[in-house]
Every structure is written in C-alpha cells, then in structure tokens.
Simulated scan of single mutants.
Amino acid sequence: MTDALLKLSGVHTHIGEYHILQGVDLHVPRGGLTVLLGRNGAGKTTTLRTVMGLWQASAGKVEFGGRDISRLRTPEIAQAGIAYVPESMAVFSDLTVRENLYLAARSGPMDTTRLEWIFSFFPALKKFWNYPAGKLSGGQKQMVAIARAIIEPRQLLLIDEPTKGLAPAIIQNLADAIRQLKGQTTVLLVEQNFHFVRQLGDTVAVMDDGRIVHSGPMAELAADRALQQRLLGLALDSHQ
C-alpha cells in the first residue's frame, strides 16, 4: 500500500444524539488526491470536520504522518500541517483579498515567492488584490478560500464541495488549479461532481451510512458502470 499520510481507523463521531460516523476506515496516500464520494448525508463533511478536530471522534483513531491527532484541538491540528476549506468558503467579506490572505499567514509576513505561485493558478486574486472579498463571484471567493488555506505550506489540504453552485467555466479553471496544487500537497476532496473529480482523483473512497463501503483507484471506479450503480445508485458519467 502507498504510504498513508492520513489514516482513520474505526472512527465514530456522535453529534448530539446522532451517530454519524460508524467505524470509518480511510487511508489517504501521501502525495496524491483522494476523493471522498457518497450520497448526501453519508458522513463526508463530518469526516473532514472530525479530522480537523471541529467535532471530536467518540471512538477510533485519526493518525496524521503516523501521529495520533484524535484528541488534539483544531489549532494544534492546523499547526501540524493540515488546512481545511469548508463548503461555506469561509472568507471575511468586509476585508480585501490581501487582508484575507494576510490574516491566514500566521507565522509572519506573506512569502512573496509563494504568493506568486498562488497567483500563477489563481490570477484573479492578483487582479482583485485590493477588492473586498464579499463582492467577488462565488468562484473567486472559492479561490480566496483555497489560497487562505495554502498561503503557508501545508502537508494536507481538506476541501469540501468546491464546485457547488459554480458555473462550468469556473469549475474548469478550479480543476486546472487543483491539478497544479496536488503536485505540491496531499489533497482529500469531498465532491459530488464526478466530471470534476474524475480528471483529478488518484484514489477514491465511497461512503454510505457513516462507513467507507469502497476504496481503490479512481480509474477503476470511473471505468465500472455497474460498480457506480451499486455504490451510488447512478452511473457517475451521467451525473453532470
């Protein structure tokens, strides 16, 4: 097995009286992009939030780089090298793009070389550098959210539903950017748009009812219509 940067073993998560994750086993290989698929309510977002410590696992173990992070607080997990881009995009609307990124650069002034690297695949951010983030389009806000997460080097990037509500042209631009990004950091991506993830994913895991029910190479799932139907109730190449 390829070296796993992130490993979940028998992870359970309760939110109030609800038992959401029910023994999740997940391996995220180092240096690639893993896609987490599943129907709405399967537990995908809860998985990301549990890794990030926003919700505490009630049982099982979350390991990052061989270290048990199951009981660490969210700031400690971030300092360990994990960044999280939530579905809500999480930008400061009243602040400029520059100010949003400045706040995310916790260890000191923004590295100009790294900033130019981010501009190379998100050129709109340079164009709107002094523009209030709240006035940007949905796609541009998503770019700000991802840029905030990677303004400092990260070993693992968790991204939740980045294409939701975006126009097709913007989705393709985002795909091009993430394709470049995944060469620099390991990515765990939750997404519903199969046409988006099929071109990006190296490995895939499918969730159902709080458990991982399938994992393997993305190419195998993309080529197997019967498996798509069994796992997700639809042929993924028909899901636009």
Results as ranks from 00 to 15, higher is better:
Leu33Trp: 01
Leu95Tyr: 09
Asp202Gly: 05
Lys164His: 13
Trp117Met: 12
Arg198Ile: 00
Ile171Arg: 11
Met89Pro: 00
Ile212Gln: 03
Ser238Glu: 15
Pro75Lys: 06
Gly60Trp: 04
Arg98Cys: 09
Ser120Ile: 04
Ala133Met: 01
Gly41Ser: 12
Leu189Val: 01
Gly81Arg: 01
Phe196Tyr: 13
Glu152Phe: 09
Asp209Gly: 07
Thr74Ala: 15
Glu76Arg: 15
Arg154Asp: 00
Arg30Pro: 07
Asp68Gln: 04
Arg179Leu: 07
Ala78Met: 11
Ala177Asn: 10
Met52Ile: 01
Asp209Lys: 14
Leu188Ile: 00
Gln142Asp: 03
Phe92Glu: 03
Glu76Val: 13
Ala169Leu: 15
Gly210His: 06
Ser70Asn: 02
Gln228Thr: 05
Arg30Val: 09
Gln172Cys: 02
Leu72Asn: 02
Gly23Thr: 08
Gly31Ser: 06
Lys126Asn: 12
Ser238Thr: 15
Val97Pro: 00
Asn40Leu: 10
Val51Met: 08
His239Val: 15
Val144Leu: 07
Val85Thr: 03
Ile15Lys: 08
Thr163Asn: 12
His239Asn: 14
Thr186Ile: 10
Pro86Leu: 07
Leu115Thr: 04
Ser137Ala: 12
Phe128Thr: 13
Ile170Asn: 08
Gly139Pro: 08
Ala90Glu: 12
Lys7Asn: 10
Thr46Trp: 00
Arg71Phe: 01
Phe121Glu: 05
Pro123Val: 08
Trp117Lys: 14
Ala222Gln: 09
Phe92Tyr: 14
